[in-house]
Nucleic acid binder design. Structure first.
Lengths: 319, 319
DNA sequence: GTGAAAGCGCTAACAC
DNA sequence: GTGTTAGCGCTTTCAC
């Protein structure tokens, strides 16, 4: 593999001159620089990232840690982050699971964007303080070199619950996602706030896990129990809402006639289920862009500008 | 930032002993090793990936280059690749666009898995020969240190076209994806092969771009043209098929009564559109797993075992 | 404008 | 069993 030495030898100059030429240092006259560039390209030289990173103590890389690639939500977020980073000359590493925590510690990245509830807040705080700044998307965590960029779930969920009440529902139930997550907790707060301002109390709460099967399970249990049914079901996300709708439809219930169902996220599927899902639309691509910008802000020692991302109620047919 | 020197000083040993201890070299007695490990952890030491990579001339990282994060197909593929790599102690870098070509050249990864039609075959061949092995998922490209792991599109498309003929369609049209891609070309071959064995000729061909809007456009043009309509439309992927179905339904056509429509990929949406889409099911997660295994085979100097991934006809209601 | 040389933080060959 | 040392391939300071 050709190294900077080989280029220097071939060009009859020192390695520092090659380095200067390849990094557009103004001290090297353009004529020399272009000669060196063409020689480098001829012998197939490409600088080693490891050597550069070691010397410069930075990588021009941002780590994105997500909990899994499976969800319907991440690809837009990743796309948004990636676009922003590209435009700023940065590279993105995507990782999942425990290994992601190590990548920042190993200095494989200059900063991290985290959306992975499996990583503990304590460990994130320590990592940010010692190894590099972190933007967290999945909790409100503030600390040294760590900043949250979370969804304003409460406001959005309050708005869609209001809409459900406005549409005539009075016996409202909430389907929780994974209970102690930021997203579930704050969405639930919005649900309860909307009930309170309408002088209603929660008719029931069910426990799901943000997945479609968990929504199906909730719906099956609800039907099996018999007794009085809620007339409006507010779900903590679209996937569970779609699971609920599937089971209800199969059981012969009409939506929204017999029972209204709402979601959260506006995943692509939301406009394909029958009836099309009323939900909260989140612009995940833009969220990703903001997250990338925030990470770069931290790297550059600037203050992060944004702290909340807002959703918009998307009215369709399920409410 | 703590380095190996700091650990050595704190432990009263040399840096090589620290290195040995931390890399589980059998020469270091467990008692010493564990003392060193605990000191390292106390002072917050984490080895630098850049220094290790530079010295070892390898990264334990695989690059995955995809054309965009937007498609409904990639997340399963990425998940499959990631799982396999994790289980083998490797890390994954995901990238898009031109920058992905450079990451292997910079030796930021030991090998690459490519599914990005924008990267030219010539450039891939050169990169593989000089910088590290490549698995290509989006074309049949063989060369030094480069191996294809593509879909057996022809067989699968021939099978689903047969099914459509068997279901009564006689005037069959094909909706192309981006024309000169491996996937489109080989799927089209399967379509034509099925026609030939049934002594039929292609009723029409249309040009799409693998996207839902392009499918909608094809359908609108087809309706606007008037005249005799095909009674079976074979689409090069699900997204275009869903676009076609949407427009046909809006125009009052019954599917599969008036016209049958088939897709390819079995994306999640395929089982949600009305009528549910008959398509070719591809196990993208397993494909990813095979791709990762193949990349590791090349790194280890072993022969790649698999070269084709097979699909299965998934019969639903649109044919 | 160019070169010599130090050093980034590790690994591993070699010496003891 | 442990230490010394060379060197991976760069960037950058300092000298000329």
């Amino acid at each position: 593999m050709a190294s900077i030495k080989d280029v220097a030898k071939a060009a009859g100059v020192s390695i520092s001159t090659v380095s200067y030429a390849l990094n557009d240092d103004p001290r090297i006259p353009e004529i020399t620089a272009s000669r060196i560039r063409s020689i480098a390209s001829d012998i197939g030289y490409f600088p080693s990232a490891a050597a550069r990173n070691l010397k410069k103590r930075s990588t021009n890389t941002i780590l994105v840690a997500i909990s899994d690639f499976g969800g319907p939500v991440y690809h837009e977020l990743l796309d948004g982050i990636h676009r922003k980073l590209m435009s700023e000359g940065y590279t993105m590493i995507v990782s999942t699971g425990v290994s992601s925590a190590n990548l920042l510690k190993e200095r494989s990245a200059d900063a991290a964007i985290i959306s992975d509830i499996h990583l503990s807040s304590e460990s994130l705080l320590r990592t940010a303080a010692h190894f590099g700044p972190i933007i967290v998307l999945d909790r409100d965590l503030v600390g040294e070199a760590i900043h949250p960029l979370t969804l304003d779930n409460k406001t959005a969920m309050q708005a869609i619950t209001r809409h459900m009440i406005h549409s005539g529902a009075r016996k409202l139930a909430y389907v929780n996602g994974v209970f102690e997550t930021y997203d579930n907790r704050t969405r639930r707060e919005g649900f309860l706030a909307a009930l309170e301002e309408a002088n209603l109390t929660s008719f029931a709460e069910y426990q799901g896990a943000f997945t479609k099967p968990s929504g199906e399970q909730v719906a099956r249990n609800l039907l099996a129990l018999g007794g009085e049914r809620p007339d409006g079901i507010v779900c903590a996300n679209d996937e569970m809402a779609i699971g609920v709708i599937d089971v209800f439809k199969a059981a012969g219930l009409r939506i929204p006639g017999d029972v209204k169902v709402s979601g959260f996220d506006d995943i692509e599927l939301a406009s394909y289920v029958q009836p099309r899902l009323t939900t909260v639309k989140i612009d995940h691509r833009n969220w990703g862009k903001l997250a990338a910008a925030a990470a770069l802000d931290l790297i550059r020692g600037e203050a992060v500008k944004v702290a909340k991302v807002h959703g918009a109620v998307q009215i369709r047919e399920s409410v």
